[in-house]
């Protein structure tokens, strides 16, 4: 278990410095989460570097269920380490990350995926960069043209 004084928490300590309740409630700071040692692949890499890289990249995009704002790759919560083990085991067995993502979304909803899914509710999010660039570009473009000497 790690001191969960991540950057967010540190900033919070400056900006919302009412930290005692935070650390008391924060799920990982509770000492005994489990009596068991970590699951086999929780903190052990896959032998094949390519598969490990695949698993690692995928785990960074999955949100830890018990710790609100961290990926399972950066969390010490026991559920996160069990899920890491599960994911490595499945990827070793040849499952594709996106299939695992679908399996997780079926259970936990879109919430669990840090990568926005193709759900229609998220379309505006992907449209945002294009729209902002177009609007901004148009504003700048017309003004520059007007500013050219006749």
């Amino acid at each position: 278990m790690t001191r969960r004084l991540s950057f967010p928490v540190m900033l919070a300590s400056m900006l919302a410095p009412i930290l005692a309740p935070v650390l008391a409630l924060s799920p990982v700071s509770a000492v005994a989460q489990t009596a068991l040692p970590p699951a086999p692949y929780a903190d052990t890499q896959l032998e094949d570097p390519a598969l490990e890289a695949k698993a690692r990249d995928f785990m960074l995009t999955i949100r830890c269920v018990t710790c609100q704002s961290q990926s399972i790759a950066d969390s010490n919560a026991s559920m996160a380490s069990d899920l890491r083990s599960e994911i490595r085991t499945r990827i070793k067995a040849g499952e594709e990350p996106e299939a695992i993502r679908r399996w997780l979304i079926e259970r936990y909803g879109n919430w669990i995926s840090y990568t926005p899914t193709a759900d229609p509710v998220l379309w505006p999010l992907w449209a945002a960069p294009v729209v902002l660039l177009l609007v901004g570009g148009t504003l700048v473009g017309t003004r520059l043209k007007r500013r050219k000497r006749p």
């Binding site: 699951a39 559920m79 069990d82 899920l83 083990s85 599960e86 079926e106 259970r107 936990y108």
Partner: peptide
């Protein structure tokens, strides 16, 4: 022991 059922129950 590995939260496997817990995960598959969501």
């Amino acid at each position: 022991a590995r939260s496997a059922l817990q995960l598959s129950l969501g």
